[in-house]
Design a protein around this nucleic acid. Structure first.
Length: 516
RNA sequence: CGGGGAGUAGCGCAGCCUGGUAGCGCAUCUGCUUUGGGAGCAGAGGGUCGCAAGUUCGAAUCUUGUCUCCCCGACCA
């Protein structure tokens, strides 16, 4: 956040004044998405969808590298599939969209109503997740130990009828990938669960430049039907936690429900152990709240639909042709470069209008490098470069740096890598500075989160990992402070002392935080 | 789903109490003048006032219902 009062920021709301409103302002001003008029559903606009396509491409590569194959399963799941697994149903029942009719009929008043004659024999659920329908397929596909492991993934939309929605973070319909795998035994399934978790951790940090903490969730936060749930948790700039991806070891829960069995080497019919794991468009919400600033989004170069935008300063006169030619030449040189093992994505913005007026649109979208090229630049072989992560000069003006075209072209890849790295380090340092590790009792926890701090961050503490009713009591205590247990960091320091909730010897470290 | 707030031009809002043919700013378009950094002046276009019933001679305005959004809670792989 800027301390310089003379800066005229591009957004109408600053983070420090109203973080929730700021978040929505970024989405609107960066043209990521907008309201659709349909409850809880958003229209994802080109820049937002472009970011999703980048995420899809790079995640899909990693999924395939792990030997997982893409499939597609039905949007509609028969109600009876869910009924096979009680815990799973209970977890999702309250948020399922149900299809009950297959035809409409006129209501005699100019409107349409479901035709009572066209009521479905068995209601269809719009998938909230696909364990049941994929389980049914796996039960058909898997016969022998030679069929294992069965590694599948699908890119799809799912629907969960959430009570309260927020764009990208919790929408009724969202886009995701869901990996579903079946294995011969627990060890192999757990290994896959952890492989997916590590894939998500490294993706979040290397691609999204979003530092995360990976680890198992407490039992009260498990996916319905899971034996163990792992998550990656990211800290947003307001100090809240965002669960940015999950990976579940499902044991034999869904194998029993769907009859996923194989004949082992001894000839015995044996239940498979299954996993599921997913990341969604929620990741974009995480990117916004990790890298956004008071001038809009700062899009990490690896997921930026355009990494460099060239803005010719057109004058509607005879000089424009030469200027455009110069810019086209520059664009071609940049587009031939390779950054992050991909062709550099560079756009020459030839739309009519003043470069200065168009500039702020790209600033708000978070294009990593913006070039404004005037007639004098063209004549002198120069460029003016604006780095999105170093937007302002001391005097409150846009921080353009002039340099020779050749120098820029030869350093552009390095610059993009530097921006990617700078965004990650900034986010990591901010997060690390906001994790409090010095609290060892309940009163301390209460005091810490009762302070009138705008963005309190997280607390890491040692606990005794209570279960059942004892855990419920802890959850209730935390709830009164609006806190939740995020996960148990896998790379945490050694455990020491007593559990602040139970008074028993601590056995592991957990992260406690307010969450989205 | 409970409590609160809101829906009027692309965006932000006034008008509503006290019913009488719909307004402002920004943006857009046109013209002129400017312009190496988020231009100025003048003119113009653009709205079934979320939707539907009702009251009324007449509804943005009053009544009822309904949809959507925002905030707080409950809920939330």
């Amino acid at each position: 956040m800027s301390q310089n009062a003379t800066i005229k920021h591009a957004l109408p709301v600053l983070r420090q004044d109203d973080f929730a409103q700021w978040y929505q302002a970024v989405i609107a001003e960066a043209e990521l998405a907008e309201e659709s008029g349909v409850r809880g559903c958003m229209v994802i606009k080109p820049w937002g969808y472009g970011i999703w396509e980048r995420i899809q491409k790079l995640m899909d590569e990693r999924i395939k590298e792990a030997g997982v194959e893409n499939c597609y399963f039905p949007l509609f799941i028969p109600l009876s599939y869910f009924a096979r697994e009680a815990e799973h149903v209970e977890g999702f029942a309250k948020e399922m969209a149900v299809v009950t009719h297959h035809r409409l009929i006129g209501d005699g008043k100019g409107g349409l109503v479901p035709d009572p004659e066209a009521k479905l024999e068995e209601p269809l659920i719009v998938r909230p997740t696909s364990e049941t329908v994929i389980g049914a397929a796996m039960a058909r596909w898997i016969q022998s130990w030679r069929d294992l492991p069965m590694l599948t993934n699908q890119w799809a939309n799912v629907v969960r009828w959430e009570m309260r929605t927020r764009m990208f973070l919790r929408t009724s319909e969202f886009l995701w990938q869901e990996g579903h795998t079946a294995h011969a035994d627990e060890a192999d399934a757990m290994a896959e669960t952890l492989r997916a978790l590590e894939m998500y951790r490294s993706f979040a940090e290397d691609v999204l430049a979003m530092p995360v903490v990976a680890g198992p969730k407490p039992e009260n936060e498990r996916f319905p039907g899971a034996v163990e749930t792992f998550s990656i948790e990211a800290m947003m700039q307001d100090g809240k936690a965002l669960q940015a991806g999950t990976s579940h070891y499902l044991g034999t829960t869904f194998s029993e429900a769907a009859g996923i069995r194989y004949q082992d080497k001894e000839g015995q019919q044996t239940l498979c152990h299954t996993t599921s794991w997913g990341v969604s468009t929620r990741m974009i919400g995480g990117v916004i709240m990790t890298h956004g600033d008071d001038d809009g989004l700062r899009t990490p170069p690896r997921i930026a639909p355009q990494q460099i935008v060239i803005l010719p300063m057109l004058r509607d006169n005879d000089g424009d042709a030469a200027l455009l030619e110069y810019c086209a030449g520059l664009r071609a040189k940049l587009a031939a470069l390779t950054a992050f093992d991909e062709k550099v994505r560079v756009l020459l913005d030839k739309r009519p209008g003043k470069a200065t007026a168009k500039r702020w649109g790209w600033v708000k979208k978070g294009v990593p490098l913006i070039l404004e090229i005037g007639g004098r630049d063209a004549e002198g072989g120069q460029v003016s470069v604006l780095r999105r992560d170093r937007l302002w000069r001391e005097d409150g003006k846009a921080n353009f740096v002039g340099m020779a075209q050749d120098d820029f072209v030869s350093s552009a890849v390095e610059e993009l890598e530097a921006i990617q790295s700078a965004l990650f380090l900034e986010a990591r340092d901010r997060r690390d500075a906001q994790i409090e590790r010095g609290i060892s009792d309940l009163a301390g926890l209460e005091a810490y989160f009762s302070e009138d701090k705008a963005f309190p961050g997280w607390v890491e503490l040692c606990w005794s990992r209570p279960t059942g009713a004892a855990l419920d009591k802890v959850v209730e205590q935390l709830k009164s402070l609006k806190l939740t247990i995020r996960n148990t960091p896998m790379d945490a320091a050694p455990v020491e002392g007593l559990c602040p909730f139970t008074g028993e010897p601590a056995v592991e470290r957990i992260l406690v935080a307010r969450a989205y």
